[in-house]
Amino acid sequence: MGLEVVQVLLKAAAGGLFVLLFAALAEMIAPKRLAGVFSAAPSVALGGMLVTAWLSGVSDVRQAALGMTVGAVAFVAYCLAGVPLLKRWGVWKGSSAALGVWLAVAVAGYLVVWP
């Protein structure tokens, strides 16, 4: 149990640092549509995978990467659905609805690929 807690805390710290790194890049870039690319940077993944490899081994990293492929497809769906939903419902309702799209695509995709 203790190791799991340490692992989660280390992942949190590493993910936060990588997010800062990519955010700094985004801050310097214009136009904003290009800066938006960095809102979908693999910052959390890099932090999480480094800690996972260190504490759990590379096979867990590969499993996480396989799951992430499905999550990334869902992320694309989030973005595609997000723009019209933001326009229609405003930022809070629109982005929350898009998050529902992400969840639905992610879970459905996972169940289809690994039934």
Binding site: K32, G71, F75, C79, L86
Partner: peptide, 15 residues
């Protein structure tokens, strides 16, 4: 909206 459009490209890269 501009940011969300740009993030679509980043999400393709995530895959």
């Amino acid at each position: 909206c501009n940011e969300a459009r740009g993030a679509t490209f980043g999400a393709v890269g995530l895959f």
